[in-house]
Design a protein around this nucleic acid. Structure first.
Lengths: 363, 363
DNA sequence: AATTATTTGTGCGTATGTATC
DNA sequence: AGATACATACGCACAAATAAT
């Protein structure tokens, strides 16, 4: 049973609503009798009735006198709500506003509205968002998975979406536990391969890589880093790789670089997981009196506004942002039109392009 | 009492509903307490409660804990949707993501979801957004008005919201055609007054002002500019003021400044409508070979990420962003709880603070 | 066809909690 | 502080509808 939440009858109502939304209680199915529920949950029949009355008024259940209480099929004829759910890790930060902008442009052109949620890249929050959005009358969903490399406890919510036949598409990553789902990815490995290849081409040999450990993007960018080193005939040195997690993203990378410098490690260049990290590294290097790009070259990833406005213009890899959002929306619109969408998952992989600005220099 | 009709509680419910529909019990009026009704109609309090609960779920009555049960004039059958509409001029640009973030934080903490729309500061788009959102089952609305200084053709949509008793609150501006509406404003005049006063205090005399002509914010910032000049004993010269509109916002300001410079006008400082304009001016001055702040001082407005990341750190006036969004959401939540919200409009005026960075210098 | 068990619907009584004035 | 009023919760009894025996 859910909740520390409020009243006994609300707790029971929440529990039953959850069972219905998750598909444990299915449309047309009879729920246990009031007396059975009262005994099972050790509450009076009166309280059980109150809980049931809540769900009846919400339209989840229908009571039949002398017979029992039944789960109602809430989606006859699919009343078109015109709502699409959008769940991202963040709303206001970094490149996310522009991705959302791309999604909104396409959807609003087609008469849809966005219901916006964000998870803060926290799986618990993701669960809350998914649960909440299941209670809304949405026609489809665009999701950026949370910490997508790890095992997810939220798979059941996606399965519930499947059982309600609500199409959804992942961006930036996907859950490997789910098969045959549509997604749009960046070719993160290729993007980082190009950035590191560029650094190697400039004559750099000691190339530090900084990567995020708890999402697919980090893993793939690391792969591209390793492959580029190999193809350039440079040795892969684990000590030249810095891993960070969502929780320590604001401190770990700069601290690790500082430690490297202070312990006398030789560094020619630093390839960063993204522009946010790169900008922090630029600041750290500045504080240490190291000039970019004269002493050390730095690359970012995403081509965000940070790369446009930082004091040293950041050489970076261009994330398609609006284009990715718009594409996700377009594919979702296709899925909405096609009843067989479950059988035809769409897998798009966008190739990011290296954007050379001013943070790298020939050695 | 009506009846022959079924149950005791239904008979009472019918009676009360009739009283409401016939006007004997009027909107806002308090009905007798449960105990009084029980005695009057010789039934148990429990039965009275059942009757009242029917009318509450039909939307005729609203119970207020510790106070009484009141007649409501909302349309019957309104289920709680948990959705709040948010209409802003832009989604992804500038300070809007952070305002939306503030709104979202408060609303999602309180179990609401956001339906997001943007107008591109176009009144036609605003009409589309409002029309669309009226068809959704929203409980409340947060709106940033479009070109709010001009006469609006969309007033009828707001009146429709009133007639549906859907509360709404304006941010950044409001329509003067509508009376007694809640809004949150920045004290734009005070913010610009402080910025221009600061420039005057640094010894600048020829202070150019650049303002947006088609919204209240622009008008008010201009007022603060004029007052600051006056209070500093400087003459107000209309030729030192540049007005632009939404449509030419990306070109007019820089062109006008360039024209001033090229025609030999003397300029000590430029006070800009906002950071976006200021950054364009910085670029224009750079292209003309004029150094900031050595040759000309420049101020912005809003303290956006642009002011943090531009090559010359921009002295600006701090917009509360998240705080403003969160406050709008909190006030709306209050309005949702209070049936009398129409009679108690909330008018909040936030005071922005000057943030001195590096784009101004003593003359 | 009548009986019986089950299940929801109606109604009463009581006690305690909590918000408001 | 106390009174008032709604909110939650337990218990009991009987009515009405249904399905199975």
């Amino acid at each position: 049973m859910d909740s520390q939440n409020q009243t006994k009858y609300n707790a029971l109502a929440d529990f039953l609503r959850e069972e219905i939304l998750m598909g444990s209680i299915r449309p047309g199915e009879k729920i246990p009798s009031e007396n059975e529920l009262a005994e099972k949950f050790s509450m009076s029949r009166h309280t059980v009735r109150k809980a049931i009355s809540v769900l009846v008024s919400e339209g989840y259940l229908a009571a039949r006198h002398g017979q029992g209480t039944y789960c109602v099929d809430r989606r006859p004829g699919r009343a078109r709500s015109g709502n699409i759910g959008v769940i991202t890790t963040y709303i206001s930060e970094y490149i996310f506003p522009r991705i959302i902008q791309g999604i909104d442009r396409v959807l609003s052109e087609n008469g849809y509205s966005i219901i916006l949620k964000n998870t803060g890249n926290d799986t618990g929050m993701e669960a809350v968002c998914l649960k909440d959005i299941l209670t809304k009358n949405i026609e489809g969903l665009i999701v950026e998975p949370t910490k997508s490399v790890l095992y997810s406890n939220n798979i059941r919510y996606y399965q519930a979406l499947d059982s309600h036949r609500i199409p959804y598409i992942f961006i930036h990553g996907y859950y490997q536990q789910l098969e045959n789902k549509s997604y749009i990815l960046l070719d993160d490995a290729k993007g980082m391969y190009d950035a590191v290849g560029y650094l190697a081409g400039l004559g750099h040999r000691k190339i530090v890589g900084i990567f995020k450990a708890d999402d697919i993007q980090g893993i793939n960018r690391h792969k591209g880093y390793a492959k580029a080193l190999n193809d350039a005939g440079l040795a892969y040195d684990p000590d030249n790789v810095i891993w960070f997690h969502t929780e320590d993203r604001e401190t770990k990378p700069s601290q690790a670089v500082r430690h490297m410098i202070e312990t006398g490690r030789e560094i020619d260049a630093i390839a960063c997981y993204n522009d946010q990290v790169a900008v922090r590294i630029l600041k750290q290097l500045y504080d240490l009196g190291i000039r970019v790009p004269h002493d050390i070259s730095v690359t970012g990833f995403d081509d965000s506004f940070l790369s446009e406005n930082s004091p040293v213009e950041l050489t970076t890899v261009a994330h398609p942002k609006e284009k990715l959002g718009a594409l996700a929306a377009q594919i979702l619109l296709q899925m909405l039109k096609d009843d067989d969408y479950l059988k035809k998952p769409v897998h798009e992989i966008l190739i990011p392009k290296l954007v050379v600005k001013g943070s790298c220099m020939k050695r």
